[in-house]
């Protein structure tokens, strides 16, 4: 590379990092700075002055525990329901004609392209009738729509990569289908199963559209952030945003290997 090309590269890298890191810097700056120096000022300081923990401790506390527990419970349920649906599906698909199993996966991804808000409103009125409106399980059932295709796709790839002889051997030795699945396939697929669980958990943790339409009265953290903004309580919105973001960043860094486009297709909608 010529020197000017090298210089251009460095400039580009700085610009790229500035765009992708700056909003996170804003999150940390505003979360730990007295708001009189940031968003209460007409011209905020862009560097830390008078660091404080007061924002997080005082603003988040009153509205944190209910939504945080709700978010934790729903995300855990989404992980479990996703596995309960995706494990048998992926196992079944790994045993049939690859062309048909490919078509089923494509079908799942196409349904995932459906705008959440279009289906969330009819689902809400059905849930009211069924008593699932505002419930943890109802919201988890809806959010699993986003995670199921990705989960089935990852697990199908995993099951296809396990030599079928291992399972046959177990069956010949007298294991039942369920036992062979449980004793032979599950341990080999454990890393993928863990990844699917954590990715599903993350999608649910961040999800907003289904949450605001299906559980507005007992909100999750993202919905509580929206409610705070709507009431003009920006400090609470900021503090809750900080709480919501820390686990999400940790999971993204941990799960980087699995964050591949073909897995995520519809999973990152706004």
């Amino acid at each position: 590379m010529r020197p000017w090309q090298k210089a251009l590269m460095y400039i580009l890298i700085v610009v790229i990092l500035a765009y992708f890191m700056f909003p996170l810097y804003v999150l940390f700056l505003y979360a730990f700075t007295n708001p009189h120096y940031t968003f209460f000022r007409s011209y905020p300081y862009l560097y830390p002055v008078r660091l404080t923990l007061k924002n997080l401790l005082e603003a988040a506390a009153p509205s944190l525990s209910g939504p945080a527990i709700k978010s934790l419970v729903v995300a855990t349920l989404v992980g479990l329901i996703t596995l309960a649906l995706a494990l048998p599906t992926a196992y079944g698909l790994s045993k049939i004609n690859p062309l048909i199993s490919y078509m089923v996966i494509v079908l799942l991804f196409i349904t995932n392209l459906m705008p959440s808000i279009v289906i969330a409103i009819p689902i809400a009125s059905t849930f009211v009738r069924l008593g699932l409106y505002n419930s943890d399980i109802g919201l988890a059932l809806a959010q699993t729509l986003i995670t199921l295709p990705m989960a089935a796709f990852i697990l199908l790839g995993t099951f296809q990569s396990i030599p079928p002889e291992l399972e046959w051997q177990a069956r010949i030795d007298g294991a039942s289908l369920l036992k062979a699945f449980y004793k032979v396939l599950m341990p080999l697929a454990a890393p993928s199963i863990a990844a699917v669980y954590m990715l599903s958990w993350l999608f649910s943790w961040d999800e907003f559209t289904f949450a605001v339409l299906l559980s507005p009265i007992s909100p999750t953290l993202p919905v509580e952030i929206y409610i705070s903004v709507d009431r003009g309580n920006l400090l609470a919105a900021l503090a809750l945003s900080f709480v919501l973001t820390i686990p999400a960043i940790v999971l993204v860094v941990l799960m980087q290997r699995y964050l591949r486009a073909e897995y995520l297709a519809g999973g990152l909608k706004g």
């Binding site: 961040d206 999800e207 952030i225 945003s241 919501l244 999400a248 999971l251 860094v253």
Partner: peptide, 10 residues
């Protein structure tokens, strides 16, 4: 890719 994990609301 870190912004991928940040919720849209945030």
């Amino acid at each position: 890719i870190i912004p991928m994990g940040v919720a849209t609301v945030v």
